[in-house]
Write a protein that binds this DNA or RNA. Structure first.
Length: 966
RNA sequence: GCCCGGGUGGCGGAAUUGGUAGACGCAGCAGACUCAAAAUCUGCCGUUCGCAAGGAUGUAUCGGUUCGAUUCCGAUCCCGGGCACCA
């Protein structure tokens, strides 16, 4: 009887499906465990071997937890709204709904072949109206809420309105009260429109004007990903910033809680770090400086407020820099400086973001002629403007402390400004020193105090005199929430006379209308703007025409799995109370600051509104690494000949073609520095021979099959190692590079092929065996043989090809039980720790040992099968039934580890003197440390080494080694 | 530039967190079975000296702590990821 994996896997996948083995129900008799994968975007190219890595890991963990007696929720669904489907629609005219449906079916078929234990009855799709009804509904909840800073919690907007009516903004701490405050009488005097505008500022999802990437030539708004160096990815047209009405989520109100929440969840340090950087909390102070300028009339006081994280360096301020867009610039610029300032302003205006990005290190700036007065020592400090100071962060103004800040120092040196040294010997005059540990010198009343103390002193003095105050700043901006696109959730919002009105909840879902054309609407609006019969409503109002971004649906999807068919709520409180947080969330790092931050915010909001009982969605996150592929390539260089022709020259990876003229076949081709910026032409593995070479005929075929628009087929010259290959016909050494798998790189490995050749169990196990789950590693199909051999070996413990059944019911001996129990402990540990690669190794060791022991005993094998069941579900289920067991192996009890089987009565320890190993002695394991000393002292050999006059000093016994230190 | 990771055989990677480095698998070499192949099994497999027993050396480089360092500390060099004029 052979291991026929195809028949076994097909049979069990069918049986599991028919018997609904993986359907989950609420079961309060068992502890729950929620294991979730980041749901995929169903792209057209299907799965490659990298995708299932995380899914396999979560599947193993789910099955393991189920064996351990947990009620496990392990669902799967699709993040099915998104740009690629829409782009595909633009190109082919196929409706995104159709392609999405096809892609999902394809994904599901691929996933099913790998044998996952998903509860498919809970499948969700973000593009399904029954799903996005609730995305819209939560959006409306955000719209109808504001954030009360006094209690750090979202509250209904109606309560804010009531407060305004009674007492105005008095006592309300929110984002806008600092900018606009009023009392109840003033509030009542505002027009309806004014009131609505004020309320809009407080809403957690709000509409405001913001900049978008606008591409005039394409007539459309582009996502950041679609803009490359200021040009559109498609077509290469220039992209500029354009102000448009946009929707935003006021995630900044949650910044502090998002930061603090990190402490109570298990994310990797690097991911927490990324989120912290993104939130970018900095504590410092705002300091006000009085400005003197000949442009100001006497009595006309102007105050410049800067933000600094280093108030302790106040005596080291040698200049001020304010953003060119700063409102003070016009007012304080002196007559003498006006022309230069105007020139500089024109210069910055002429510079696009693209240029500002490209020339980051260039120092520019201009003196305004005005001076700021240092409030502590009355020094006059010149005020400059420079484009490196951003109007959007802090106060749009900084104080320059050249001795303590690298950028400030470079600025001072460039413009030849004097540098005040407040840190004494820490400052060497040629480079700034950013230390926070110095004792201040040359600093007025701060001289002699440490920087830490000085910070406190300055801030309290500032607050006492009203010249400044403590201030916390966040780098994070409110999240843009609208996209001028078709394939996304429509906003449940209508507009009339410039005011937004929310749809009533019972009007949801607001379904996405069917369109024939996916081109942009007028004025940068989305495609929906073209469907006037949908946008224009009978009462004269108009629907919002943008749609929600990809992260809308994914911000709360983990809740929907808990109660996927609920028509009355997004998820019943009962279901969310039971399933609670996601215990284990597996996905890639690419969502570190996007999805993971937004869904944390939504969860906090839903918690605030009392809809769920927890405010962090994911208890533990594991990032799976990427599986990379090996791609093969040649370098291509564009060259020009004297007679005006152009050609493409090929070279291998190792040998770059030199810049300069090349004489090939009597024609001189020139490669200049620019065309030396070669591009890599990649090709499929099949073109390469056994030693990694390309034959000349293959290269020619390659160019016919993979035509490159920029290459004229007639002008390709295959050139390598100073030889023109068109003459010699010599094979060409292919370059290789390990990189992310992608269809366009011809390095994709398809899981279906592996499953057909080796089976799903082998595939699953091999993916885990490749290396630690969170590491990225290259795919190598060759190694899969070893894992497949392991499964065959396992099978042979039960069945022999010729004699059939070999397993028996004999009693296990001590040696066999030792192998078994060591395996139990290792697998239990490793699975719990997600160390799946070492677990697979442990299985191999275990099966090797049992094979050596010729152990075919049911008593042992049955337990091994249970341990192995999460990893290779099909073969274990089959063998489990062959042993005469009913049901599914997942309902079997997890084998218990008994230490007594593993303990050795006596163990051989190496004995060393001063770290040098001399011999080994036997020590019984229950011996205490004193006993060891006795043994050592009584051991003649050891005594001989130590000699009579050299008694032992220290004896370490640590698991493996006894060392005598003399 | 800044912030996180990480550097171990020909390759993917182990090492109970300071205790005999290289588990497990791939590739390679030798052998058994076979007419032959496949499948299966056995042995060898960091480098170096040696017929061998065995010795020396070895975890990116240099230095330190320790009886003992892949592990801890300091400096340097590479590789990967993230952020980027954030005051």
């Amino acid at each position: 009887m052979e291991y026929n994996f195809r028949a076994i896997e097909e049979n069990w996948q069918k049986t599991w499906k028919e018997n609904k083995v993986y359907q989950v129900k609420k079961d309060t008799g068992k502890p729950k465990c929620y294991v979730l994968d980041m749901f995929p975007y169903p792209s057209g190219s299907g799965l490659h071997v990298g995708h299932p890595l995380g899914y396999i890991a979560s599947d193993i963990y789910s099955r393991y937890k189920r064996l351990k007696g947990f009620n496990v929720l392990h669902p799967m669904g699709y993040d099915s709204f998104g740009l690629p489907a829409e782009q595909y629609a633009l190109e082919t005219g196929q409706h995104p709904a159709v392609t999405t449906e096809n892609n999902i079916n394809n994904f599901r078929a691929q996933l099913e072949k790998i044998g996952f234990c998903y509860d498919w009855s809970r499948e969700i799709r973000t593009s399904d109206p029954s799903y996005y009804k609730w995305t819209q509904s939560i959006f409306l909840d955000l719209f109808n809420s504001w954030y009360d800073r006094r209690i750090s919690k979202a509250r209904p907007i109606g309560e804010l309105e009531a407060t305004f009516e009674q007492e105005g903004t008095f006592g309300i701490a929110s984002f806008f009260t600092e900018k606009k405050s009023f009392d109840a009488i003033e509030w009542a005097a505002f027009s309806k429109k004014e009131q609505e505008d004020i309320l809009m500022d407080y809403r957690l999802s709000f509409s405001s004007y913001g900049e978008v990437n606008w591409c005039e030539a394409l007539g459309t708004v582009l996502a950041n990903d679609e803009v490359v160096n200021g040009f559109s990815e498609r077509g290469g047209f220039p992209v500029v910033k354009k102000k448009m009405r946009q929707w935003y989520l006021r995630i900044t109100e949650y910044a502090d809680r998002l930061l603090q929440g990190l402490d109570k969840i298990e994310f990797t340090d690097s991911l927490k770090e990324q989120q912290k950087n993104w939130i970018g909390k900095s504590t410092g102070a705002e300091i006000s400086f009085e400005v003197t300028s000949s442009a100001l009339t006497t009595g006309d006081k102007k105050v410049l407020t800067v933000y600094t994280t280093r108030p302790d360096t106040i005596f080291g301020v040698d200049f001020m820099v304010i953003a060119p867009e700063h409102e003070l610039v016009k007012q304080i610029t002196t007559e003498r400086q006006r022309t230069s300032i105007d020139d500089y302003l024109n210069y910055t205006k002429s510079r696009s973001d693209r240029e500002r990005m490209a020339e980051v290190k260039q120092i520019t700036g201009c003196f305004t002629g005005a001076f700021a007065i240092n409030p502590f020592d009355g020094r006059e400090i010149p005020v400059w403007i420079a484009e490196y100071v951003l109007i959007g962060y802090g106060t749009g103004a900084i104080m320059g402390v050249p001795c303590g800040d690298t950028r400030d120092f470079n600025f001072a040196r460039f413009f030849d400004l004097p540098v005040t040294n407040i840190i004494g010997k820490h400052f060497n005059g040629t480079e700034a020193n950013t230390t926070k540990e110095a004792i201040l010198e040359n600093s007025g009343f701060l001289t002699g105090t440490s920087m830490k103390e000085a910070t406190e002193l300055v801030v309290s003095k500032l607050e006492a005199t009203g010249m400044g105050k403590r201030k916390v700043n966040f780098r994070m901006r409110d999240a843009g929430f609208s996209r001028q696109r078709y394939w996304g959730e429509p906003f449940p919002i209508t507009w009339k006379d410039g005011s937004a009105r929310a749809l009533d909840k019972n009007e949801l879902p607001l379904e996405l209308p069917f369109v024939e054309e996916y081109g942009p609407g007028p004025e940068g609006e989305g495609p929906l703007a073209n469907i006037t019969e949908w946008t224009n409503l009978p009462d004269g109002s108009k629907r919002e025409t943008s749609t929600m971004p990809g992260y809308a649906g994914s911000s709360w999807y983990f809740l929907r799995y808990m109660d996927p068919h609920n028509n009355a709520e997004f998820c019943s409180r009962e279901a969310s109370d039971y399933w609670n947080q996601v215990d284990l969330y597996i996905g890639g790092t690419e969502h570190a600051v996007g999805h993971l931050l937004y869904s944390r915010m939504w969860t906090k909001f839903l918690f605030d509104t009392g809809r769920i009982s927890f405010d962090e969605p994911y208890k533990k996150l594991v990032n799976q690494g990427m599986i990379t592929g090996k791609s093969f390539f040649v370098e291509t260089y564009h060259a020009a000949s004297a007679d005006g022709r152009t050609a493409v020259l090929l070279s291998s990876a190792e040998k770059m073609l030199p810049v300069g003229p090349l004489d090939i076949n009597g024609t001189v081709w020139t490669i200049d520095a620019e065309s030396r910026q070669s591009s890599r032409l990649r090709y499929a593995h099949k073109y390469i021979d056994a030693v990694g070479r390309l034959a000349k005929s293959q290269i020619e075929k390659l160019f016919v099959e993979q035509p490159d628009q920029t290459i004229d087929l007639n002008s390709i010259i295959i050139y390598f190692n100073s030889k023109d290959l068109t003459e010699t016909g010599e094979p060409f050494l292919s370059g290789t590079v390990v990189e992310k798998m992608s269809k366009s790189k011809y390095n994709v490995e398809n899981p279906d092929d592996i499953v057909i050749n080796y089976g799903a169990d082998t595939f699953r196990m091999y993916e885990m065996f490749l290396g630690p789950i969170e590491m990225s590693k290259p795919w190598d199909t060759k190694g899969i043989e070893g894992v497949h051999r392991f499964l065959k070996k396992l099978w042979r413990l039960f069945f022999d090809e010729i004699t059939g059944k070999v397993w028996n019911e004999q009693k296990a001996i001590a040696a066999e039980l030792k192998v078994l129990h060591r395996c139990i402990r290792k697998i239990d540990d490793d699975t719990e720790k997600f160390s799946f690669n070492t677990a697979v190794s442990a299985f191999m060791v275990c099966i090797n040992e049992l094979t050596d022991l010729k152990c075919h005993k049911k008593e042992v094998l049955e337990k091994i099968l249970i341990l192995l069941a999460p990893y290779t579900p099909h073969i274990t289920e089959e063998l489990w039934h062959q042993l005469g067991n009913p049901g599914t192996i997942l309902d079997a009890p997890f084998p218990e580890f008994e230490e007594s089987h593993v303990i050795e009565s006596s163990k051989e320890y190496p004995v060393s003197v001063n770290g040098k190993v001399r011999t080994t002695i036997h020590i019984s394991l229950d011996a205490s440390q004193q006993d060891v000393e006795v043994i050592v002292q009584n051991n003649d050999t050891i005594k001989k080494w130590l000699g009579e006059a050299a008694p032992k000093k220290i004896i370490y016994v640590k698991n493996k080694m006894i060392n005598i230190v003399v």
